[in-house]
Design a protein around this nucleic acid. Structure first.
Lengths: 208, 208, 208, 208
DNA sequence: AATGAATGAGAGTTCATTCAT
DNA sequence: CATGAATGAACTCTCATTCAT
C-alpha cells in the first residue's frame, strides 16, 4: 500500500471496498507516473493492479473522472500527511523558506511517482468542455498556503518587499520543474539541488 | 498565417505543400492551446483548419509523431525569431536577466497560444515506449542557452555564486508557470508580474 | 403503494417479500412511464425505489423477464379493479360503448403512468428470439372482452352490422393513442376528448 | 434497394457514399422490423447488411441518432412517394376517408416492414433526457395533413360535426394498430379489414 | 496534389446476472 | 431476508492509419 491507506473506510465504505479502491488508485498512480495521464486507460490500470477486468474499475468508481478525482485526493492527502509529520515548527525568515523547500524536496525524493502523478493529473484532467478541472483547488493547496505564510513573515519584517503570491508561485514552479527533471534523470543529486534552491530563494526573499 | 510562414519551402517542398503544412500546423497549435495535447486528434485539427478529411493530415505528415515534431519546430522557430528581433544586446548583470525575462514575457503576452502549445507538446509528447520525446532538445533550447550566458556573466564577476544550470531552470520554470496562469486568467497584469519576477531574480543573482 | 398492493401475499409469499416486490414493481412502472421500456434498467429501477443494489431486484425476481411479467400482471390487476369498481352495469347500445370509453378515460386521467407503462411493456417486451411476449394475452384482455360485449349487443339488435373484433380493436387503439398524447401534453382537455370519442363511436356503431 | 434509393446523391454525397448509406438504412429497417428498436445495435445492422465492421456505420453516420433520423426520413420519403403515386385525386366525402384508408392499407400490405420500422422509431427514439424525439414531426406528417383535409371537407358541408384533429388521430391510430396486428398475424385478411375500417369511419363521419 | 472509402484496435460505460456469505 | 463483490458481454464512439484511385 503506497498512497491510499484505505482511509476511505470511514466514509461508509466496507473494508473490501476501501481496499479495492486503494489498490486501483495505487495502480493508477503508477501508470500515470510511467506513461502519463493520457495513456492511463482502465486496461493499463487493471493490468498494473493485477485485476482481471476493466469492469472492476467501473464497479468501484462511477466513471473515469471520479477515479481521477479520488486519485488526486489520495495524493494530496498522502503529501499533506508527510509534510505535517516532517515539518519542524520554527520561526525565522530563512527557516521558513528553507524548511519548506527541504520538506518538499525530501518528499519528492521519497515519493517521486506520487509527485509526478499529481502534477500530471492537475495539468491534464479536463472537463467535457475542455477546461482544466483542478486549477483552483490545486492553486490554493499548493500555492495559497505558502503565500499566506510569506505574507505573515513580511508583516513581521523578516522579508524584503515582494508579492507573496508571485514568490510562492515561483517556488512551487521550481519544485514542479525539479520533479520533472528527476524523472528524466533519476541519478540527479537532490541534496545539491536542494541547497542551491534554498540559497537562491534565501537571496530572493532576504531584506536588503 | 500565425506560426509557420512556409519556411519549409527551402526543403524541397513545393509552395502548395508548404502552405498546406503551415495551415495544418497552425490549426494544431490552436487545438492544443484550447483543449490540450491529449485532445488534439486529427479530427479536431482538420475541423479547426476547415479541411474536409483527416486524410489531408496523413497526406502531408507521415504520422502523428511527425506532425507534432513539425509543430514543435515551427513553434521554436517562431519563438526564436521573435526573441532575436526583440533582444537588445547589451552588457551588465541586471540587464542580462532582466532583458531575458522581459523579452520572454513580451513574447508570452503577444503569443500566449504558441507558448502554451509548445509547453503542452514538450510535456506530453511521448514515444511508443511511453518515454518523453523532446526532453533533451527542449532543455538545451530553453535552458542551456541561458545557462551558458549566466556562466559567462559569472566569469566576468557580475553575479553571485550559484549553479547557472539550476538558476536557468528555475527562471524557465517561472516563465512556464506564468504561461499556464495566463491561460487560466487572461486578465492577469503581466507588467506587474514581469516587474516582480525581474526584481526576484535580480536579488537571487546579485553579488552580496 | 400505487399499483401492486401486496396482492401476491396469497401466493406463498411472506409479507416482507410481497412488500419488496410491490416496491420494486412500483419503481419499475415509474421508470418506464418516464423513460420508456428500453431505458428501464435495474440500475434506474433501484435508484427510483431508493434501494441500494441491483442485487435486490435479482433477489426478488428470477430475471428481467419475470420482473416485467409481474409488473404487467400488477398493472392489469390494477386496471381491472378500477374498472370493476367504476362500471355502472346497464343496458342500452349507446351506454355500452359510452360507459366503456368513459371508464377507460377516467382511469387514464387518474393513472396515466400506469396506462403508459402497460402500453410500453406490451409493445416492447420481447423474448430471447426477438418475438413479442405478451401479444396474445394483451389482445384477449384488452380487446376480447369488449368484442364479446359488442357481439352480444349486435345479437340483441342494438348495433349496426360490423365486425365486433375490428370495432373493439379500433376503440382500443383510439384509447392507446390518447394515452400517448396525454403524456406529450398533460394539459389536454380529457373531457372534450372523451365526448368526441363517444360521439364518434356512437355514430360508428349506430344502426342506420 | 428497398427504401432509400440513393436519393441523397443530390446532397453533396458521392455515389458510393449514397449507396452505402442506403444499404445501411435498409438493413436498419429490417433489423428494427424484426427485433424492434431497442435491439437494433450497430452489430446487428452490419450483420444484416453484410458489412464487416460496425465502424462502417460510424463512418457514414455521425452517431446513432443521425442514423435513426436518416432512417426515419427515408421511411417518410418512401411512404410519401408511394402515397402520391397511388392516390386518386377526387372529391366527395366518402371518397376522401375511403381513399385515404385504402391507400394507407395498400402501402401497409406492400411494405409492412417499413410501416413497422417507422412506428418503432417514432415511438421509441428518445433524446439524452429521455424525452421522445420525433413526436411533433410525426404528428404533423401523419395526422396534421389528414386533419386539414377533414376540416376542408367540413367547410364544404360533406361531413358531420366533429373535431377533425381527434378524428384524424383516431384514424391514424386505427392504422397503426392494424400494422402491429399484421406483424403478429401475416395471414390477416387485409381487404376485409380495409372494408370494415372504411365502413366504420364512413358512419363516423357521415352527416346524420 | 488531393481525395474516397474503409478499417482494426481500443476507449469508457452500462447491462443483467452470479457466487459468495 | 438481505447484501457484498465481482463479472463477461455488449454497447456506441473515437483513434490514427492504409489501400485505392
Amino acid at each position: 500500500m503506497q498512497v491510499k491507506d484505505e482511509f476511505g473506510a470511514g466514509l461508509g465504505l466496507s473494508h473490501t471496498e476501501a481496499t479495492r479502491r486503494a489498490q486501483i488508485i495505487d495502480a493508477t498512480v503508477d501508470v500515470i507516473a510511467e506513461l502519463g495521464f493520457a495513456k492511463a486507460s482502465f486496461a493499463r490500470i487493471i493490468e498494473k493492479a493485477g485485476l482481471s477486468s476493466t469492469r472492476m474499475v467501473s464497479y468501484h468508481f462511477a466513471d473515469k473522472q471520479e477515479l481521477m478525482t479520488a486519485t488526486l485526493m489520495a495524493l494530496i492527502d498522502h503529501h499533506d500527511r508527510y509534510v505535517s509529520e516532517h515539518t519542524i515548527t520554527d520561526a525565522g525568515r530563512a527557516t521558513l523558506v528553507r524548511s519548506f523547500l527541504e520538506v518538499e524536496i525530501a518528499y519528492l525524493a521519497a515519493h517521486p511517482r506520487q509527485v509526478l502523478a499529481l502534477k500530471e493529473i492537475a495539468a491534464n484532467a479536463r472537463g467535457a468542455d475542455g477546461s482544466p478541472m483542478f486549477d483552483l483547488v490545486m492553486h490554493d493547496l499548493r500555492v495559497g498556503r505558502l503565500a499566506r505564510q510569506l505574507t505573515q513573515g513580511q508583516r513581521e519584517g523578516q522579508f524584503a518587499e515582494f508579492d507573496p503570491e508571485i514568490m510562492a508561485r515561483t517556488i512551487r514552479h521550481a519544485l514542479d520543474g525539479l520533479a520533472q527533471q528527476l524523472v528524466a534523470d533519476p541519478n540527479l543529486d537532490l541534496d545539491r539541488y536542494a541547497a542551491e534552491l534554498t540559497a537562491l530563494f534565501d537571496r530572493a526573499t532576504a531584506r536588503p
